[in-house]
Design a protein around this nucleic acid. Structure first.
Length: 643
DNA sequence: TTAGGGTTAG
């Protein structure tokens, strides 16, 4: 790319843009004058208002009219080509700069450095920088430092910062702002923290932009406690500060904290914007809190806020994850321009709720419309295939992903495919697939195989998968429980004891599983064997009927007799999902639109229970696993009014 | 008249 960009000092002015086929010359202007000043004023106004195409058109007209650009002209023109990322135009502007002898003007030099960096040509930017007679300007260092960082070369940026300090060149808030985004990966967090200290030492404490930037750094490094500590100490928080914290919580799965902070924002009468709502909707999606999500939607509508694609995608995701696929679909279908994320959200929504056929149909339609898939949408579609038992289809997608789109499957893809093969009973193929993985398989991959071994009662392979998975995730209790259950089914008491001993040695204790059902704006939470709900008697009575009779909801047992025993035989072991389902059945109107939503983590027994119930009741309801939402754990078991 | 920076979705 850089080869044809060599400078030609003899470049004629009017050759500018001749090789550039962009549509920047479509507009004509009647503006003509032979002195540079009025052109510069006009250029400044266009550049200030972000009308970069127009600014470049004007620059060309300036040349055509015979006016000679000067040192004041170039920063505007260069900024325009930088903002539009037009390297050829930028390079030609550089030729003009040299031809007119403006290359030693610091303003022009800095604009050139910025232009090259924005066009991803840092080597050219460095060249401009190196050729500067005096490298003592803070702004030039700032431009190149942030250029390196923006182009992913954080170390060069930091080296330049060290050089700057060694040479005694003063740095300022913008220098720090240029560097901090490079520390958003955990391995550089310590450098970011040293910048945080530097900021305090150098009296940049009140610079809100730096604080926001540092906050984002902690968030991206998943250091949420440090992020919150900083957030609490920022005196005049701006909307960006609130948004950074809210989206930070959302990205790190702390949905409860998102809603708390949003609530606090409302109390303090800080006006949210689209970015805030995207974070809040994402939290609602994680919690399955459809009611709050709906309220947010209403608020957006009543605030006359302009809907952007981010907001729509967040809304689709929220409704889809909460099980309201009809609403998610209406919003999706209504979008004039759907992004890859819109497709991923709706495909993922159908996939996790067991409607794999619709998910793959949509995926194929997406490909037809010419949208280039990425790794994430493949995770959604593979996941959909595994939950709908579309084994061959899923395997084809894995192949398509590699062959047609050149995407390298990662561990997430492999765990979907292992799950896919596993559910189909093709355990040996699943094991071979893991062996063929280019990268080291992670816990999720071996965990998927272990799960499959549970379904197909393969103790030997389960032991292999378990040994691998506990090596990678020694504190994940779920895997120990899974193996213990496999041993239980195989009547292997020695195995059970071994697992229990291992858990005791490692001081691991299983957290109770929770399920919840949202009804009339309230969330009702259940743990296994829960008896604290006021309707416990009715719930168990109904459960007993459902377990005993596979024929009809609320009917009699196989012999046509009313079931007298209202207590299921294994009360302690009644899974939370079943309790939530029975509660849902008792508390929703017959005839309402009700559908069974199968949760990802629902156990195999409950899965068949749900299937059985769905055949009987022909209604729609949503029962979700709340185990991961620690927000719920603080409360007692049932009748939690969430908000 | 002119140069360098912060938050968003699957």
């Amino acid at each position: 790319m850089t080869k044809h960009l060599h400078l030609h000092k003899n470049t004629k002015f009017l050759s500018l843009f001749h090789t550039n086929k962009s549509a920047i010359f479509t507009k004509a202007s009647s503006f003509t004058t032979s002195t540079a000043t009025p052109w510069n004023t006009h250029l400044r106004n266009l550049s200030k208002h972000g009308q970069y195409n127009e600014a470049l058109i004007l620059y060309r007209q300036m040349l055509q009219s015979g006016a000679t650009p000067n040192a004041f002209t170039f920063p505007f023109a260069l900024k325009s080509s930088a903002s539009l990322s037009l390297p050829i135009t930028g390079k030609q502007l550089h030729c003009h700069v040299i031809k007119l002898g403006c290359e030693s003007e610091p303003f022009v030099q800095t604009a050139l450095i910025t232009m090259y960096c924005r066009c991803k040509l840092t080597e050219f930017a460095q060249k401009v920088f190196d050729e500067m007679p005096q490298r003592n300007l803070t702004v030039c260092y700032n431009a190149l430092i942030s250029g390196y960082v923006q182009n992913g070369n954080f170390l060069n940026g930091f080296l330049l910062f060290s050089e700057m300090r060694l040479r005694g060149v003063l740095f300022n808030a913008v220098t720090v702002l240029g560097l901090v985004p490079g520390c958003t990966v955990p391995r550089y967090l310590w450098l970011g923290m040293s910048l945080h200290c530097l900021k305090v030492k150098c009296g940049l404490v009140n610079d809100l932009a730096i604080a926001n930037c540092l906050l984002t750094m902690y968030v991206r490094c998943a250091s949420m406690e440090l992020a919150r500590k900083l957030f609490d100490h920022i005196p005049g928080k701006g909307l960006i500060t609130w948004n950074a914290m809210i989206s930070g919580y959302a990205q790190n799965g702390l949905a409860g904290e998102v809603l708390e902070l949003y609530h606090e924002m409302e109390l303090l009468q800080v006006n949210p914007d689209a970015v805030t709502f995207v974070g809040v909707l994402s939290a609602c999606a994680n919690l399955g809190a459809q009611k709050i999500g709906f309220e947010v939607e209403e608020k957006i509508r009543s605030s006359c806020m302009r809907w952007n694609v981010f907001l729509k995608n967040a809304l689709i995701n929220m409704y889809a994850r909460c099980g309201n696929l009809a609403k998610a679909r209406i919003i999706f279908d209504d979008m004039p321009e759907k992004s890859l994320v819109s497709w991923t959200a709706i495909i993922g929504g159908y996939g996790i709720h067991g409607l794999g056929n619709i998910a793959v149909e949509l995926f194929d339609k997406m490909i037809e419309t010419g949208i280039q898939p990425d790794g994430t949408v493949f995770v959604s579609v593979l996941n959909a295939c595994s939950h709908a038992g579309l084994t061959e289809r899923g395997l084809n997608y894995l192949d398509l992903m590699k062959r047609e789109y050149g995407l390298k499957p990662c561990s997430e893809h492999y765990s979907c495919v292992v799950d896919l093969l596993g559910r189909a009973g093709r355990l040996e193929e699943a094991r071979k697939l893991i062996e063929l993985m280019e990268d080291e398989p992670d816990g999720a991959v071996w965990g998927a195989l272990l799960g499959a071994c549970k379904i197909h009662k393969n103790v030997e392979l389960a032991e292999l998968a378990f040994n691998k998975v506990v090596e990678l995730e020694p504190t994940n209790v779920g895997y120990y429980v899974l193996l213990s259950n496999i041993y239980t089914e195989a009547n292997n008491s020695e195995g059970i004891l071994r697992v229990r001993l291992m858990m005791r040695e490692r001081k691991l204790k299983k957290d109770p599983g929770y399920s919840y059902f949202e009804c009339k704006g309230k969330t009702y939470l259940f743990v296994a064997g829960d008896r604290s709900h006021p309707q416990t008697k009715e719930i168990y009575k109904l459960l007993n009927r459902l377990e005993d009779t596979e024929s009809e909801y609320g009917g009699a047992n196989k012999n046509g007799q009313e079931v007298i025993n209202h207590e299921p035989p294994n009360i302690i072991g009644v899974h939370s999902e079943r309790l939530a389902i029975a509660f849902a059945l008792l508390n929703t109107e017959i005839g309402a639109d009700i559908l069974v939503i199968k949760n990802l983590r629902i156990c195999n027994d409950c899965h068949s229970f749900v299937k059985r119930v769905s055949k009987i009741v022909d209604r729609l309801f949503v029962v979700r696993d709340a185990t991961r939402f620690h927000h719920f754990r603080n409360g007692t078991c049932s009748c939690n009014d969430y908000w």
